[in-house]
């Protein structure tokens, strides 16, 4: 494992921990999109179907369990916790799941490396992860006033994607035959979705101001 991959995984882990910290300690999920969190839970459930059948390393198995456990518990908190669910911006978080899920499923059925159930589900999870942040970005745009933890959560997710691209470039040059078009293109699309957010995050950081997104 190279340093970019490890740093990517660690920022991904940090993003989830920041979100859980916000929900668990402040008992608030204001500004967090339940739609995005449900999509992530679906992404991990479809991607890690092989968790008990294909052993890669202890690190991989533990990380998979953490991502599955944290994404489902975040969804549980936002839907059912008697205090947390009251802070959920339901009326603002109106993005429809199926607008993202259906096209990704069709695309995975058409474009995949192997037409088997596990492989199509894995490919579907890559396509869906690429666009799963959209409801969150729309919610941020609508609420505009973003608290620090929510801003840091999205920033860390974007950093994770950027680091994964560096990881692929590194692997392409160091490992023979490391070519994964489906992963790369969906990963690139995903990272580009954060570009706009990163621009405003950088501006607010540079000017030492609270993060505001333009209408």
């Amino acid at each position: 494992m190279n340093i970019f991959r490890l740093a990517g995984d660690m920022t991904h882990l940090a993003s989830v921990l920041v979100l859980l910290l916000k929900i668990h300690t402040i008992k608030s999920c204001a500004g967090v999109s339940l739609k995005t969190q449900e999509l992530y839970a679906l992404v991990f459930a479809c991607r890690y179907l092989d968790i008990f059948t294909n052993f890669v390393s202890l690190y991989n198995t533990v990380m998979k369990l953490i991502f599955l456990g944290s994404s489902f518990s975040i969804v549980w908190y936002m839907r059912y916790h008697k205090v947390v669910r009251r802070s959920y911006d339901k009326d603002q978080d109106t993005f429809r799941h199926y607008f993202l899920v259906l096209p990704c499923l069709v695309l995975a059925l058409l474009i995949n490396e192997k037409f088997t159930f596990k492989e199509v589900m894995w490919t579907f999870s890559l396509y869906l992860e690429a666009v799963a942040i959209l409801p969150q970005l729309v919610l941020l745009q609508r609420t505009r006033n973003i608290d620090n933890l929510t801003g840091q959560y999205v920033f860390l997710l974007g950093a994770y994607r950027g680091l994964y691209i560096l990881n692929w470039i590194y692997r392409y040059f160091t490992e023979p035959h490391f070519v994964h078009w489906i992963t790369w293109i969906s990963g690139l699309v995903q990272t580009l979705l954060y570009a706009d957010f990163f621009y405003y995050y950088y501006q607010s950081w540079k000017n030492n101001q609270k993060l505001h997104l333009p209408a």
């Binding site: 294909n54 890669v56 390393s57 991989n60 991502f67 894995w122 490391f178």
Partner: peptide, 10 residues
């Protein structure tokens, strides 16, 4: 095989 190599990523 080589196609499976990327599957060690999360």
């Amino acid at each position: 095989g080589d196609k499976e190599k990327g599957k060690d990523e999360l």
